[in-house]
Design a protein around this nucleic acid. Structure first.
Lengths: 217, 217
DNA sequence: TAGATTGTTAATCGATTAACAATC
DNA sequence: TAGATTGTTAATCGATTAACAATC
């Protein structure tokens, strides 16, 4: 399936949740497209990749479509995750990000700081880093959330993959994607995001300056 | 400029920084492409969007190319930012994310919690939310980092845009992009990222299961 | 039934890849 | 000079959009 489609599915999901909350229970591809800045054709093509979710002449049932997309994204599979590195970002995720809302169970966290080991954040137990391998040997784990400092990124990743972890949600600003690795890596690169924003701001400022120059003439 | 190209530029930049640190001072489009999983054609096309950065028969000078990309991304423009909402994510950004590395000056932060107002994080002063408008009236500000709780996202965004902010780095899980708005919004949607990862994990598990079933037959 | 909207095929558009002359 | 690699045009590929028959 095209990566572009995969990246749009979560947006549909969020918008459908929003519509549900507002009491909307049916929607057409045209309406949904307008809400997300997409054409109705694209919306229909996206859904048709996975089957027939709508009803001709009627549109899509919001709840049913939501459930279909949730299924496609793997939200009903009971995936479990561990978080490695309980620093600021790790803590922000543990305290403010609701993994369960997206079908993922955050089962444990790991850190090297003695003061943190044995404590809990939001009901999640924090183990010492030396317990990582033994924990993973005993608990089926699908995803590792990597929130360690930059310098620890590579060695910790090696320990994780050696213990059989094949999916990493990477919050370190280190490129983990290796050419021959079979590990699934999803990067949250804050710097890339900020730089993209910076580019568009720069472009906007140039346009304003050009416009001002034209008007002065 | 194509959005795809813009999203690749920060990756080139990070890789070039890495190469610089390792003492590499020239690189060909083929080598750079291999490091990032791109074809040499694509690398050359991307750079040619902005001018001629290389030298035939030689390749690209790492430092010069890095400087060119930094310029394109607006890193030399001295953009300033404020951060609104000093919760866990806000604090994680203030303490661990080096805005200066990407050419952005984080000049101030804002929160409603009286205990935080007047304190500093990493050298950045925290103002009360009621000082937001007066601060923005006095200080040229290019970017607002939005790290407030979900419920505050929309009202705070309105206050920001009314005060002339035209670029928002959005960490709330709320869709701010409005059809007719001229505000530049860059979203960091953790949930979208996790769901994409979840999709690829689900796909991988299905493949493994299919393979196991084939072998059993 | 008439109107609406899907599912799906065909047409268009844009992005990536291939190829190669220019040139260092 | 010979080899290497860019800059750039042309070819290919894939994604988006348009169109419309099917059908609720």
């Amino acid at each position: 399936m095209s990566n572009n489609v995969i990246r749009r599915l979560p947006r549909y999901l969020r918008k459908l949740d929003e519509l549900s909350e507002s009491g909307v229970d049916k929607i057409s591809s045209r309406q949904l497209g307008e809400l997300l800045g997409l054409t109705s054709s694209q919306v229909r093509q996206d859904f048709n990749c996975f089957g027939e979710f709508g009803q001709q002449g009627y549109g899509y049932n919001v709840a049913a479509l939501r459930a279909q997309i949730a299924g496609i994204m793997g939200m009903e599979r009971g995936f479990t995750a561990i978080l490695v590195g309980v620093g600021n970002i790790g803590r922000a995720l543990m305290e403010n990000f609701c993994f369960a809302d997206w079908g993922v169970k955050l089962a444990a966290a790991f850190d090297i700081k003695p003061a943190l080991i044995g404590t809990e954040f939001n009901g999640v137990h924090i183990y010492g880093m030396d317990e990582l391998e033994s924990y993973l040997a005993e608990h089926d784990t699908d995803i590792a959330v990597l929130t360690v400092p930059k310098t620890a990124a590579i060695p910790v990743t090696e320990r994780l993959t050696k213990s059989g972890i094949d999916a990493i949600w990477n919050f370190t600003n280190v490129e983990l994607t290796e050419p021959n690795s079979s590990t699934i890596v999803e990067n949250v690169h804050f710097s890339d995001s900020l730089l993209s924003l910076s580019y568009y701001v720069a472009e906007r400022r140039d346009e304003s300056a050009a416009k001002a120059a034209r008007e002065e003439k």
